[in-house]
Nucleic acid binder design. Sequence first.
RNA 1: GCCGGCGUGGCGGAAUGGCAGACGCGGCAGACUCAAAAUCUGUUAUUGGUAACAAUGUGCGGGUUCAAGUCCCGCUGCCGGCACCA
Length: 804
Amino acid sequence: MADVYNHKTVEKKWQKIWDDNQSFATSDDYSKPKFYALVEFPYPSGQGLHVGHPRPYTAMDIVSRKRRMQGYNVLFPMGWDAFGLPTENFAIQNKIHPKMVTKNNVERFKNQLHSIGYSFDWNREINTTDPDYYHWTQWIFLQMFKEGLAYKAEMPINWCTGCKVGLANEEVVNGVCERCGSEVVRKVKSQWMLKITEYAQKLIDGLDEVDYVERIAVSQKNWIGRSTGAEVDFQISGKEDKLTVYTTRCDTLFGATYMVVSPEHPILDKYKDDIKNWSAVEDYRVLAARKSDFERSELNKEKTGVVLDGLKAVNPVNDKEIPIFVSDYVLMSYGTGAIMAVPAHDERDWDFAKAFDLPIVEVVAGGEDVQKQVYTDVATGTLVNSGFLDGLNVADAQAKMIEFLENKGIGHAKVNYKLRDWVFSRQRYWGEPIPIVHCDKCGYVAIPESELPLELPEVESYMPTDTGESPLSVMTDWVNTTCPKCGGPAKRETDTMPQWAGSSWYFLRYTDPHNKEALASPEALKYWLPVDWYNGGMEHTTLHLLYSRFWHRFLYDQGVVPTKEPYQKRTSHGMILGSNGEKMSKSRGNVVNPDEIIDEFGADTLRTYEMFIGAFDLAASWQDEGVRGCRRFLERVWKLQDILNTESGYSKDLEATMHKTIKKVSGDYESLKFNTGIAALMSLINDFTKKGSVTEDELKTFLVLLNPVAPHITEEIWSICNYGGYVYEQKWPEYDEAKTVESTIEIAVQINGKVRSTIAVPSDGAKDDIIAMAKEELGDRLAGKDIVKEIYVPGRIVNIVIKG
RNA sequence: GCCGGCGUGGCGGAAUGGCAGACGCGGCAGACUCAAAAUCUGUUAUUGGUAACAAUGUGCGGGUUCAAGUCCCGCUGCCGGCACCA
């Protein structure tokens, strides 16, 4: 009898052996086929590892271990995305340097990950806060600056009126400061921006070259939000200026009965003297500015606004004078900041028109009475009340209108993107310094690349200053410098980069993490790129994924990286919820600590359970009973030693099952269907138990198949059985397709689609023979009936369709 | 409001248009035990029937098909995301 399985000693033992042997170190042999598996590197928070982390890590660990056994040179690295707000806030509160906070957190995370037995190549560990790393983050920024992709712009920040500091969106909760509860307003500040919009089309086109799961590709496209429409100029009555609008429905131009500009639109200040109710307009603007982003985008709210008394516009197609309003439902950041309003055919315009009692003119017929209901369908309507467009459908009307506008020189076709440029500065300490100085004579000047990395200086306090500047701004020794261009006095940029910066290119660094000359060598990049498989959370599908694709595409355009796209394949995992089906959180009291699970049941149990919990891409809730079930399964695996016989090969009655299981498990690991793969292994062990014995080859195959999921216990059994070497260096088992089919199979026999019986048939039986067998089985049930149709689906069913 | 996803036993969840409920948990019964735990064996969708078997059953209402959890149309509920995107 085998000893009781002791996970604590066994798991420690193998983790040490893997470390000592450098079992999972990536080879620099570029002649081997490569496989680059990537998981999102964690933010080392003070809470330590959460049970959500191991889900994606285990999944990619399984794929990596399998691929190694299939002969690939595998790169499966890990690192730390360590710049960030919580660390900084913790440092402020506890007066500890964020560097120390990070060091402690990383240590804890690393120990925890180690205790789960991942096959990461720790020789390639990276940390975004390491100057040797952010050297290259800064370098990439400088390349963007040189190419004109980094620029300064006035942008609103969230300003806490209590703490007198700028806040991240995340720190604004329901319009008030998360910490002090004071009102948060928008305050305009000069910020560094990255021109991601210049890459909008490339980022859409690039999606055609890669293999992302459908909903991720859709999210990216929706986020970039390409739309085709037209820009149209409306003359302001009696003035020189025109008001340009962007519209996707230029076919409805005859129905434009008023215009709306955003509260930030420059036309307001320019014609302030002509606007008779200026004080009302000004009040409205102040109100809009006070509103946080949250309130301003609050949904279903009443439409508000103020008419501009004294300023009118002219509809260019019918020369009618129409009023202009200011309202915050029009955003300065999209299109031109001004719209033509067609209440009959746009929902928001309709709401606004109803609220302000404005005329609603139908120009597309096909819906209900437009006074009662808005009509937005573009597929079926016909143009009316629209002069030269009457009778056309929407698409033709748009084409004709664009032609008309272009001929008259008052408008043109235009492609717009929802995507906005990336606000790249943070008024914070714990981030990469932006390597730019400002010289009164030369403007913004890049520091020489030889001076990189520009290291974060030590400061007294990490607290942002009450002017909204970064803590670095009070370090006068550091701030005051000389201009690299003219040698005159200059000041360093004191804002830092956002957390997204370091994570936008980290996958490049893993290919050659210790390189001092470049972010990575061209050889390493050429061999390893693109990342073959990148798995991460759904919450990163828009921002992180898009940002890193943008940086990568930029580097490709600069000739730094060899591929247009960074990630060949992207998948995502679902969240792990508490046992009550809600998100795990301290306040809900449903948090599960992985350390406790590992201590009580072992890392292999944790790994098996997290993979067995449900469909990988869907959320799943934690069940303690399920954990015990997985532990029980592993104990049954352990006890296979007791029924091991001395035979080799697969026993005859299990041969088909063995081949089927190899096929099923191999396929399921690759398609992230770990739950059914593990279920197949559970079934197989049930078969072994029923048979009462297991042959040496059956056990070996079983151990290899299970090894990626439960690496410790399988190595231990392998070693006890003296099979030689290690499981991780075995060849992945192969199956013979011909042998996956049992010679006799049971199929269902139906009458009119309802199962009436089952019959055992030879799997290679001829159709006619099998139908004959089925009819014989049905016997009396067919007596006196007309057989209309006979259907045979090999290996599945026979269906006899009868009448009467 | 818009976008995306999901609704299957007591629970977590399986099912290339082809026997719904694999596998696990829990329950029930039995074996072992003085007893319990652990372990092992059997059983377990619902209703009726001793049983063979029959009927019903994948959120709701329609449809396509020899055959629908799966495809189509229309609802509804829940979860997630959001930048009122003209």
